[in-house]
Structures are given as C-alpha cells and as structure tokens.
Design a protein around this nucleic acid. Structure first.
Lengths: 261, 261
DNA sequence: ACATCTGGTTCATATATTGAACCGATGCTT
DNA sequence: AAGCATCGGTTCAATATATGAACCAGATGT
C-alpha cells in the first residue's frame, strides 16, 4: 500500500478511536510499526490533520478537515440541504434519525438528530455502517451496481450481534426486498435491540450518494410502525435528493462520481 | 518532502483552486510531475478526500473531510460556539465579519457572515490569511511566541497590494501596536479598498488558536469607526474563548497544542 | 490536416520508507 | 524501593516505494 494510503487510513482509524489515542495504540490498530505511525502522524500534524495534546501526548483529529469540509459544503451543501429533512423526520417519527454519506469505500454517519423520547437509540457521528448489517448499508447497496454488491458481499461478513445476517445469499435477498419495498429494514444487525429502516439518497444518475435511516428501539418497532417509517424515510430521501440536485444547483445536476468501494 | 506531505499539500492547493481543477493545472500548481500528481490524486480519491467528475475529468475536494470535520466539531465545537458571536458582530457592525483558524502552519477563514449592506467586503471560506498582510494574521502573531513571529517574518513577505507592508521591521512595529491596542489593523494589506480590524482568539494557555476580523470598505473606515470595531472584535474574541474553553468543557481547559508554523 | 492542448501510462532510476533494537521516563507490582 | 512493564520517541542499514521523461490516445482549435 502506498504511504499516503497508510496515512489516510491512519487518519480514518484515528477518527474512530474515541477521537484520542496514544502512539502505541494507533500503531497497533493500523497495523503499522511505531516508528512508521509516528512519522505519518508528524506529517499529518504538520498539515493540521492531526493535533497532539502536549500534556497527554495523545493524538486527535486536527482542524484542517474543518476547513476542507467548509469549502466543500460551500459548493456541495449536502448537510445544509439534508439536515432540515433529517430533523423533520426525527420530529415526526419521534425516533433517532441519522444521515450517512458514502466516501472512501465506506458509508459513515455524518449527522444525527436524536429522538425526543427518554428511551431512544444513540448513534455517534462518524460511525461506520457495514453494508450487510445496517439498514443504511442495505439501502445503499440496493441502488448500487452489481459490481458494488458483489464487492461488498465477497468479503467476510462480520457478525456484530447474534442477529446479524452473515450469509451472502440471505443478504442478497434482503437487498432484493429493499428494491421492491423502496426502503430497507435491519433488525438488530449492528446493535441488539435496535431496528432500523433506511432509504438511499440518489444522484440524478441513479447512483446512491448516501442514506437516511430511522433507528428505533425494538420495543417500539411494530410492523405497522416500521411500514410507516419506511414510507417516510423513502419519501424524505427522495425529497433530499430533489432539493440537493434540483434546479437550485443546475451545475451539479449531471455530475457523477467514480466508485471506490 | 515526504510523499504524504506532498499529498496533503496537493489537497490544500486543490482547496484553493475554485475547488475544481484538471490534472495538468494541479500538477503545475503543486510543482509535481503529472504522473506523481495523478498517483496522489488516485490515492486521495480512494479514501474520499478528492472526487473526480467523470464528465469533465476534473478533481475536487471529496466528502471524507466532512466526516472528519463533523467528528472533530462534535468534540471541539469551535464553529458551533463561535458562529453566533460572529453573526452578532456582523449585525452590530453592519460589516462583513470572518472567523479564521490556525492549522497546518497557516491561518485560514472557516466562517464568514456578510455585511447586510450593498457595498460590502466579500470573503471566501478557505482563504489563506498571510500573517503580515491581514488583520487576522497580525492579531494572531501578536499573541504568538517570539519564535513563531521570527519564523513568519524571516521568509519573504509578499506584496499583495501597493499598501502591503513587506518590511519585517515595520510588520514588527504593527505587531507591537496590536499588543498595546488589543486588536490589529490592516489597511489594504491583502485587498485594495479594504480595512480590517482583528483580534486573536486565545486558549487558556495564552496560545492563539484563531482570529475574528471585521472587514470594511475603506470608504466607511473612519478612525472613530475603526476604534469601535477594534474594541468590539477584541471583546468578541474574548467571549468566544471564554465560552469555548469555559466550564462547559472542563476537559479541554488545559489542553494546548504544538505549533507547526 | 495540422498543431497543441488535454488526461493518463510506462519502467528504469533514485529516493523515501521501513522496523528491530534502542533510549529514557513514567507508572504499576511486588 | 527495586523490579517490571509500559509508554512515547529515535536510529540506521535494508528495502520497498516514489519518481519523471518519454510516451499514448483523444479532444479542441486553427
């Protein structure tokens, strides 16, 4: 793997480590030598992508991504457009709703609106959403090309709970059902006691760019409720797409982007 | 320079190129071979840091930084805390106010609130703010260590306008005045017809982490106005710092970060 | 039809990356 | 308090990786 690949993977790992970690931990998690990890960290630090706390000597994500993100959002305001819809859906459903975006081969949460209820599902920003084990992932795959599905299902499917579907054929069936229904369902695929319904947000070319998902405690997930949630996420996903790619941003209407997953 | 350094510099350059550029332009601007630039871009793309438009073949900043930025903001909500103050100052002053953050050796704009007036200063998000030529930069330097000032003034100081102060001794004097006044003034240092007053946002250790600046058209920049703007930015900067590092986030109170400038 | 741009690729050469062993400091255990 | 196990960080010979001039093929403009 190229050095910059390692550096970017390191950054990615760091972002999933309680956002603060020591050199040894980082090296172990990224499967790098301590010396290598350090050189990469120093380099990333020079450019503001990581920061080191001088007291604890731990490393964390730096401020540089904030700048880049602001620049991107200024031109491709995915969050600005989508967040109001996520909020609306959270209010309407009274459950936690989260928004995910595909980038760098994985789907990750980029925004969460919490359920107003006391008993609710907590989703962390930055969480990776495995394709086979989450409603977000299934919805995403359902609208991806065959190649992408193939790629996602050809690697070993981790079991996160006892309910995680790890048989590729069974996952494929869930994807087919998602296509028919227009939304996906994942029951306790990633977390016990959580049922999610998700829908893909599509670009005008039909490529999925992300997903929106309602995550509810199992206790409240009655079939009729799930069906109404499903219809709501599917509708919301469509409205986000229309607003994001709509006439307000004609320049972006036809852009499509390479796949990297 | 290390390969990852080159990749990150490339990313940085790309962020300042109307956010969309072709391979040849990128290679030229980053002073890299076309082949090298391409390999770096491909690698960055794999991880979602850049995207290539399949129609135009141009490259732009990808979605990965958005994810990282969200993670950082969830823990270090600099923008969330600071933006309301920036907005308030923009309303009060009726001028364009921008917020900058130091990272990766440079100070860059991360948020802008426009003046409500028709004749106003436009500041782009992501703009680099040279230390010697901007109120933001001078304010930042004024509260930096001697080493940092030394480093900033030892390299050639570019003249952006006929008014840019490029004599290190003169800049040093401006810095001293800033310390006495509590805020900085830069008259047409970066852009003709623009006068700015800025103040540094300090961490509890006294280290500057960013700056807040009012940018006004020269026509409205009367001495008395500048003085009141100066007092206002200095006050606002202090309030941002207090809120950001205050009792609400005790864990961050004592953190300090290495300098990389 | 020609010239000159693109974006993208190749492969021998040169250069940057690697990692086991090492250091000094800190903290835990006996 | 002595010993042990960490930690973050460094060194340097061995090695894998990055580099770039020359090269396509296609698009655009003259």
């Amino acid at each position: 793997m190229s050095t910059v690949g390692k550096a970017l993977s390191l950054l990615d790992s760091l972002s999933q480590m309680n956002n603060e970690a020591g050199l040894t931990d980082i090296a172990r998690l990224c499967d790098l030598d301590k010396a290598t990890a350090r050189r990469l960290l120093v380099e990333l630090e020079k450019h503001g992508f990581v920061e080191q706390d001088l007291e604890t000597r731990k490393y964390r994500i730096g401020a540089a991504p904030v700048r880049l993100a602001r620049i991107r959002e200024a031109r491709y305001p995915f969050l600005r457009i989508a967040i109001p819809f996520v909020r609306e859906l959270a209010e309407k459903s009274e459950e936690t709703v989260h928004l995910a975006e595909f980038s760098g081969g994985t789907l990750s949460t980029i925004h969460v609106e919490d359920s107003p209820r006391a008993h609710r599902v907590i989703v962390e920003i930055g969480t990776r959403l495995p394709f086979h084990a989450t409603a977000s992932g299934l919805a995403y795959l359902a609208f991806s090309g065959k190649k992408q599905i193939e790629a996602a299902l050809s690697q070993p499917l981790e079991a996160f709970t006892e309910n995680t579907v790890t048989d590729p054929a069974a996952v494929r069936k869930m994807i087919d059902e998602t296509i028919v229904r227009g939304f996906s369902i994942s029951s306790q695929g990633l977390e016990v006691g959580v049922v999610s319904t998700g829908a893909a947000i599509l670009s005008p070319t039909g490529q999925p760019v992300g997903s929106i998902t309602i995550a509810a405690p199992l206790a409240r997930a009655r079939p009729a409720t799930l069906a109404s949630f499903g219809a709501a996420v599917a509708d919301t996903a469509k409205r986000i797409s229309e607003k994001y790619y709509g006439p307000e941003r004609p320049s972006g209407t036809k852009t499509q982007t390479k796949r990297t997953g």
